[in-house]
Design a protein around this nucleic acid. Structure first.
Lengths: 219, 219
DNA sequence: TATATCCTCCGTCTAAAGACTGAGCATGCT
DNA sequence: AGCATGCTCAGTCTTTAGACGGAGGATATA
């Protein structure tokens, strides 16, 4: 296979992005064509590439925990919009639920950051060839997850934007702060908040925050 | 200062070590002279350097969570054996207790991995010059930790009534509900809430609820 | 083309939250 | 007795939150 694999790196840590792109660029078969520091930015970058008629990445290395928009939601959106794209979720921690969610969201692989660089390259090449590679720990977690909660369906019908607002509320942000952070008006934030209150059937933002924390979506 | 800062990197993630050493080697004032993937290995490397009469690092970038031996214990040991060495704890997550432990163990700085590479270099140079640099979040966590450690056994300065109100807020109750449940007026509830906001140094009831949930006082 | 969803924003309005000041009453400590 | 603290409540004021209705534009799908 002589074609070059175009890879995008999405991770909120500067140093991780740097390390990955440095190492991967040593591989002649791999080319890092884009980076982003969170999910929302990643989607914007992809959109920008598409609009500019530039080549899209064949594969995304996606961190799980990121501000603004996490890896699961981003994977879901990205797969939805660019179905041919492969996504490897790359994370520091092993949580059974998250593995399940990630795979369900459309990720082809789920790799721990503790793997060696060689193993990562192997996983990338595998994913590209349609032969996803996973850590032993991860595949074990996956089978546990399937057995324990194959009927786990917590699709609460929230849109991407609503989930973003929700997570900011769960961080204790006020509407004004959220508006500034998302570059939208307070009015719009209020609209999203009202929709969240209705969809999640709670009475105020404090209960929204509690909801998120009880779900374990944040620490 | 024309001398070169000799730095050691201790982190269990290949890609983090790679990213760091790549970036730091671009800085002419910084030289990465050693690496290790966990605490025990780090101490062995240091011992080896000393026995071989090779220069020891001036500064260690130490990850917090590692297999075999974590960053806190390693920092303690390393400072004990090589008191002139400076250590910056580098971690993905912000936990008040860990910050305290890290500083008490002898680390001069505590930096989140989410910082930009430039900020990290700044922190390294600062540490080397005896002017430790910390994330804003970290120093806030530190002051919270100090306040709680010094004033507390199981007492964070809250009165019984205030704690009652706090827990009801953490359940998502509105002032009116709290007033009815405690048989007091809304005015009184507001007084307690204002006192809570002041004492716990947060801005609104949502942040109070988050505070309680982060403390694990409720599920 | 029609349709639906999402995101955006507007104005208006009511209720709630919170800041600030002051005060009465009970308790316990010195 | 004097003093501090905790709990209670009040009034006034400003800001925020949230409900409600309406609407335009973008996008995707049938």
């Amino acid at each position: 296979m002589s074609t070059v694999m175009k890879v995008m790196i999405v991770d909120d840590h500067d140093m991780v992005r740097l390390g990955l792109s440095t190492y991967l660029s040593l591989e002649s078969e791999i080319e890092v064509i884009a980076e982003a520091s969170n999910g929302r930015e990643a989607l914007e970058v992809l959109k920008g590439l598409k609009e500019a008629n530039l080549p899209l990445p064949d594969l995304i290395l996606m961190d799980l925990m990121m501000p603004e928009m996490d890896g699961i939601a981003t994977t879901q959106e990205a797969i939805d919009r660019y179905p041919e794209m492969k996504i490897i979720i790359l994370t520091s921690f092993l949580e059974d639920d998250k593995v399940m969610e990630g795979i369900q969201a459309g990720a082809v692989s789920y790799v721990l950051k503790s793997v060696s660089s060689e193993e990562l390259v192997y996983a990338i090449k595998g994913a590209f060839r349609g032969m996803p590679v996973m850590n032993t720990e991860v595949s074990q977690a996956l089978s546990r997850g399937i057995r324990q909660k194959s009927a786990s369906k917590d699709d609460d019908g929230l849109t991407v934007r609503e989930r973003e607002v929700l997570m900011l509320i769960a961080e204790g942000k006020a509407n004004k702060d959220i508006a500034e952070e998302l570059y939208i008006s307070i009015k719009t934030v209020k609209t999203h908040v009202s929709n969240l209150l209705m969809k999640l059937e709670v009475e105020d933002r404090t209960q929204l925050a509690i909801y998120v924390h009880r779900k374990g979506w944040v620490s």
